[in-house]
């Protein structure tokens, strides 16, 4: 009686560890299939379209609005200290360092990650993965590897587009509507935003997020129970896990990169 909760806890821990192990083994398998990308570059192209191009609209529009809100809020706060000229720095630093990589990753997890999970899960449920295996084609290499690299490569692009559009949105609000000086907006930004420190670190962050989001999405699909309930659960889990891991990882990366 007393041991029951402990046993349940133990089982849950063991199950989680097993799943973590399976996820890592799958990642190794995916990476082993890297050669497949060079043999069939078209597969990669299709996935970049699938994950990157089809996420462009939501990433671009979100970036624009986030940038505009940053411009507006930043202006009100900075104006209290008479430091409106720093608006450019504030908008650019928030976007390039944090919001670009993080929000783009969250959007991709919702838009493309869930679709990947559902696609792989359904392919499993309809025996398409087994079918490939029976045709002597490794489904991990053929199906998962191109999607993985598609996601990893598309993510930094999307994050950069998010930041760039966001800065233009902040510029539009700050300079266009609120009357901040154009020269000050750009020159302050250029003086304070460092290429290696801010832009490159932002790209590294989004690469890491690309790996994590795509990996989680693919694993959840590949590991899903081959039923409609199983696929829907995996899809939800894919988005939730990806969001949590992105935010957690962001903290770690920020501490590593920007902590003096």
């Amino acid at each position: 009686m007393l041991l029951d909760p402990i046993a349940t806890l133990g089982r849950a821990v063991l199950a989680s560890l097993t799943r973590l192990g399976r996820a890592n083994l799958l990642l190794v398998d995916i990476l082993r299939g890297t050669g497949e990308i060079f043999r069939h570059p078209r597969l990669l192209g299709e996935q970049i379209v699938n994950i990157g191009v089809l996420s462009l609209l939501i990433v671009g529009v979100s970036g624009l609005f986030v940038g505009m809100v940053l411009g507006l809020q930043g202006y009100y706060v900075l104006a209290q200290f008479g430091a409106e000229e720093s608006l450019g720095v504030m908008v650019a630093a928030s976007l390039v360092r944090e919001l670009g990589p993080v929000v783009a990753a969250l959007l991709v997890a919702g838009r493309a990650g869930s679709a990947l999970t559902a696609e792989i899960g359904l392919m499993k449920a309809t025996e398409q993965l087994s079918g490939l295996e029976m045709m002597a084609v490794d489904p991990v290499r053929r199906v998962l590897t191109p999607r993985f690299y598609g996601g990893v490569l598309a993510m930094p692009m999307l994050a950069a587009i998010f930041s760039a559009v966001g800065i233009l949105g902040g510029y539009f609000v700050g300079v266009g509507l609120l009357g901040v000086d154009t020269g000050a907006f750009w020159s302050q930004m250029q003086a304070k935003i460092d290429f290696a420190e801010d832009v490159v670190n932002g790209v590294i962050k989004s690469l890491a997020f690309g790996v994590v989001v795509t990996w989680i999405a693919l694993f959840q699909g590949y590991d899903s129970a081959p039923t409609s309930v199983g696929v829907s659960r995996s899809t939800t889990r894919s988005v939730v896990h990806a969001a949590l891991v992105v935010l957690g990882l962001d903290f770690v990366l920020t501490a590593l990169m920007f902590g003096d």
């Binding site: 309809t126 025996e127 398409q128 087994s130 079918g131 490939l132 029976m134 045709m135 002597a136």
Partner: peptide, 19 residues
């Protein structure tokens, strides 16, 4: 195993056609 499977065909219950 893959080499052997090229000499086997399988008809799945759900057909497993690539959609």
């Amino acid at each position: 195993l893959f080499k052997l499977r090229r000499r086997m065909g399988m008809l799945f219950q759900s057909n497993a056609l690539l959609t």
